[in-house]
Every structure is written in C-alpha cells, then in structure tokens.
C-alpha cells in the first residue's frame, strides 16, 4: 500500500485493511447504515451489528478514511439524531458537555469562553467553519488522532469522559481514556456520552497551534492550564502538546513551575522541558528539530497567555 498522506493515521488505518493492489480511490467500500434515536438505541444497534459496526457523528474524520478505503466499517450507526447528547450545562464545579456538541457550538458558547478560554483558542483553529458545523467533541476524542486539538485541551483541563456501554455508565479520567494514537478506553460496543470539565477559581488556560495553512493538521500545538495560589504562585499547572509525540501531559515541565512565582526564566525552563518531553517525527510539516523548537516556543507562549488571562480576571475581581 502506498502512502497517500504522511499522517500516522494512514499508516495505522492501512494496516487495518486496504487492497494493496492499486492507488487509493475516493469512493467508500460498500457499507450498511442505521440511524439511532437514543443512546439505548445506539448501543442496541452496535450490539446487533457486531464488531464491524462503527458510530458516526460529524463524520469528518471517518468519511475521508472510508473514501480512501483506509477504514471499512460494515455498518455505520449514525447518532446525529440522539438529542440527549447535545447538552452544554454549567454546574457549580463542573461544565458538562454532551458528546454530540458541535465544534461550532463550543466556539459560540460564552460560558465555555469564560470558563475555559483554551477551548475557544483551539476551536478557532480546528479546520474550518464547514467542519466545525458538523464535527463533535465526542468524535474528536474518540478518533484520538495524534494531531487532534481537543485531546490536548481535555488533557490540560483534566477532563473526564463519560462512557455508556451494555454494562452501564462509567466515568473515566482523560489520562486513562487515551491509550495511544487512535486507541481509547471506549470499546467498540460503547458510546461516549459526555465530557466533564472541572471548574476552578483563579485558573486560566490557552492553546496555540502552528499550521501550514488554515485547516491543515497541526505542525505542532501546545496547551496549558494554570491554577494560581492566593500568594500568586503556581498551585497547579498542566501542559500538553499536540502532534509532538507526547502521550498525556508534560509533567516535568509543569512540575518546575508549581510552588514558584511566575517569571520569564521559569517559563523558559518549562518550555525547554516540554521540548525534552516531546518526541516528534519528521514529515512534510517539518523536521524534528523544528517541531522540538515549537514545543518550547509554544509552551512558553501558552503559559504566558494563561498568566495574562488570570491576571485580567484577578484585576477585574479586585476592581469589583
């Protein structure tokens, strides 16, 4: 099989099955299709049609792979009619986001922007409006593409993922949800129903991505979330990297900050450690040294911006 893309997704998906006899085509292989009306219905359909059935939400990752015949589900279970998955609810200490919430809805939400500015940072640079109108948060996390932005966002916000299956509901920490590129804790017969973001005072967050062009997959990106103690020192820091070969958080980079008062020198050290933690691979988007440099540069930027945002919030509170 020939490489049609330098993204790791192709490598993995082609191993999952493609003809090997010619160049890729852009028409999917035959498949059947069913439309679920509720979570229970979706689970029942997944059970009935077995291991080669696949949930489809926005479809903007799955359909291109199907057209290239890199993915060949026998059944598509469409959950776009499942209204119970489209909620966005602010509670005292948690924001609950239904799995079917579209990127566009997250970007439009003032609540999301106020509580978690990183989500708006990321959503602004996820693909383009057409994709954002269809793509969902559950789909993004479930796809678990290494170049996918919301994974990093959820990592640094220490989100939880709610999964429903035949055995009932379970809540999984985001760190346990991810099991590697394209691998998650959500089994084939289960459904992601909700993502929960803990709400914390004196915290903020930021995300920045470098891309060759709007809508291209990230060359690299970084996200950070910070929590400041009352004395202005870092009480908690989470740093995540996108498309840079880091699973989970850059814990050592974050650790140098905790308990310390913010300074440019300290941010530079965190950046350096984030770069050390990264293990990027060379592709058409850039060589390893450049991507490592971005891990450093972007980490410093998102920490700086998070600090600016906390400062703005604190200032407003004092003024009030």
């Amino acid at each position: 099989m020939t490489a049609v893309t330098d993204k790791p997704r192709a490598t993995r998906a082609s191993a999952a099955g493609s003809s090997g006899k010619g160049c890729p085509v852009q028409v999917p292989a035959p498949f059947d299709y069913a439309r679920a009306t509720s979570v229970a219905d979706a689970l029942e359909l997944l059970e009935r049609h077995g291991p080669e059935s696949h949930v489809i939400a926005g479809g903007h990752s799955l359909l291109p792979m199907m057209k290239l015949r890199l993915a060949r589900p026998e059944w598509l279970i469409d959950i776009n009619d499942v209204a119970e998955l489209g909620h966005l609810t602010e509670e005292a200490d948690v924001l609950r986001v239904g799995a079917l919430t579209r990127h566009a809805a997250l970007l439009d939400s003032d609540v999301v922007g106020r509580l978690f500015p990183i989500v708006h940072d990321a959503e602004k640079v996820i693909a383009d409006p057409v994709v954002r109108n269809r793509g969902t948060i559950g789909g993004s996390l479930g796809q678990a593409d290494p170049a996918e932005d919301l994974t990093t966002v959820c990592d640094v916000l220490r989100a939880q993922v709610v999964i429903v299956g035949p055995a009932g509901e379970r809540v999984v920490d985001i760190g346990d949800f991810h099991r590697g590129p394209y691998e998650t804790a959500c089994e084939q017969n289960e459904l992601i129903t909700e993502v929960r973001f803990p709400i914390r005072a004196r915290s903020s967050s930021a995300y920045e991505k470098v891309e060759r062009r709007v809508g291209d997959w990230a060359v690299a990106a970084a996200g950070a979330a910070i929590l400041l103690a009352e004395d202005g020192t870092f009480a908690d820091v989470a740093i995540g990297l996108t498309a840079l070969g880091l699973e989970g958080l850059a814990t050592e980079a974050a650790a140098v900050l905790v308990g310390e008062r913010p300074s440019e020198e300290l941010l530079a050290e965190a950046g350096r450690l984030a770069a050390v933690a990264s293990s990027p691979v060379e592709d058409q988007r850039g060589p390893v040294d450049y991507k490592r440099h971005l891990a450093d540069e972007l980490t410093r930027r998102v920490l700086r911006r998070s600090l600016e945002r906390v400062g703005a919030t604190a200032g407003a509170l004092q003024g009030g």
Binding site: P24, G215, Q284
Partner: peptide, 18 residues
Amino acid sequence: GNCLGGSFMDYLIPTALE
C-alpha cells in the same frame, strides 16, 4: 517514488484566510 501530494490533506492550496 511515492507521491506525497496526492490529496488536499497534503497538497495545500490557499484559502481566503491566507
């Protein structure tokens, strides 16, 4: 000899934003 520009994921053309 694999073509690395064989789709619009890899062969980039500018949009209104560029």
